[in-house]
């Protein structure tokens, strides 16, 4: 397999995953913006939403006033920065197009029809009413693509590069959401603020579609400690950092075994997975949640770079 092909597969999966995560963030942002703040106005937290999406600096550079419509438009349709849903869907499709014969027909149809249909949308015609529906549709299409991949793609190297793209991106996204809101998860908050931060914890869980899963798993009200544990360390939670690493490491091991290379990325991936498996939440909170998340983001990015170097992406 060409290094470029591996790179295209990895980034195809990454961009599709990113589009889904952006859709989820935009939905949460939208929901928050129509929730009364108890003081006669509405809660507005677009700044946190854009920061979680990793595109706050790009937005601020525009000098546009931060408000619902421009923020949503920026997340969905903007052509000028890499992390808009539009650009992600296009990039996913173009990466897939360059390696068309490495994909199954189901995967290609999911990629291609999603892009074609999204590109036909006129942003001016998407009012608040259609916004939720459109974002749901993006998430469904991402799910369809992943389902096609899992159900039809041969389990050779190509599959594992797709897996790496998916889970490196997902881990990055979850860690970023936590990083932006780490302060409301600190133990001190539970004691002092109590119920007042309930909606913040709710928002975090919604950002990874985990409100129901949390309730089912803990059979308890929202507690910041449990929210942090659920999103970082629980192997049962499919968007937790640990869950992602539990998929990244085996794919790296398979690739290393098949190619006889990949030592650097494998070492990084296994070390991170082991650290998460043996991590103790109390120790993390004592040593600093922020520091832990920053460190995770760096190590996750380092794995991505090592994969590109080990497998000759360019």
């Amino acid at each position: 397999m060409l290094g470029r092909t591996a790179s295209n597969l990895c980034w195809m999966a990454r961009y599709m995953e990113r589009a889904e995560n952006l859709a989820r963030l935009a939905q949460v942002g939208h929901r928050v913006s129509i929730t009364p703040d108890g003081m006669g106005g509405y809660r507005e937290d677009w700044k946190a939403t854009l920061a979680s999406a990793g595109c706050l600096p790009a937005f601020e550079a525009r000098g546009t006033k931060l408000a619902a419509a421009p923020a949503q438009n920026f997340l969905l349709f903007d052509r000028g920065h890499a992390s808009s849903i539009r650009n992600c869907l296009e990039a996913a499709r173009n990466n897939g197009r360059a390696v068309r014969t490495a994909l199954t027909r189901e995967m290609w149809e999911a990629l291609n029809s999603t892009w074609i249909e999204f590109a036909a949308i006129d942003p001016a015609e998407v009012g608040p009413g259609r916004m939720v529906e459109l974002l749901d549709w993006v998430r469904q299409r991402s799910g369809q693509f992943r389902g096609a991949m899992l159900g039809s793609l041969l389990r050779d190297e190509g599959f594992h590069f797709c897996q790496l793209g998916t889970f490196i991106e997902r881990a990055d996204n979850t860690a970023r959401i936590l990083d932006v809101k780490y302060n409301v998860l600190l133990p001190v908050n539970e004691a002092l603020a109590g119920e007042r931060n309930q909606h913040q914890w709710d928002t975090i869980l919604r950002s990874v579609s985990a409100v129901g899963a949390y309730r089912y798993f803990y059979r308890d009200r929202l507690r910041p400690r449990q929210v942090a544990e659920f999103l970082m360390l629980r192997p049962e939670m499919p968007r937790s950092l640990r869950f992602c690493c539990d998929f990244i490491a085996p794919s790296l091991a398979t690739l290393a075994g098949r190619t006889g290379g990949g030592a650097d990325s494998l070492a990084l991936g296994e070390a991170l997975a082991t650290d998460l498996r043996t991590a103790d939440l109390d120790v993390i909170l004592r040593q600093g949640l922020r520091e832990f998340l920053q460190d995770f983001l760096h190590r996750n990015a380092a794995i991505s770079l090592a994969v590109a170097a080990d497998y000759h992406f360019d």
Partner: peptide, 16 residues
């Protein structure tokens, strides 16, 4: 961009 001339031969860059 997948090809490179080195050591008097043509090579393609693969994952191996």
């Amino acid at each position: 961009s997948d090809l490179v001339v080195e050591d008097g031969a043509l090579w393609m860059r693969t994952i191996r």
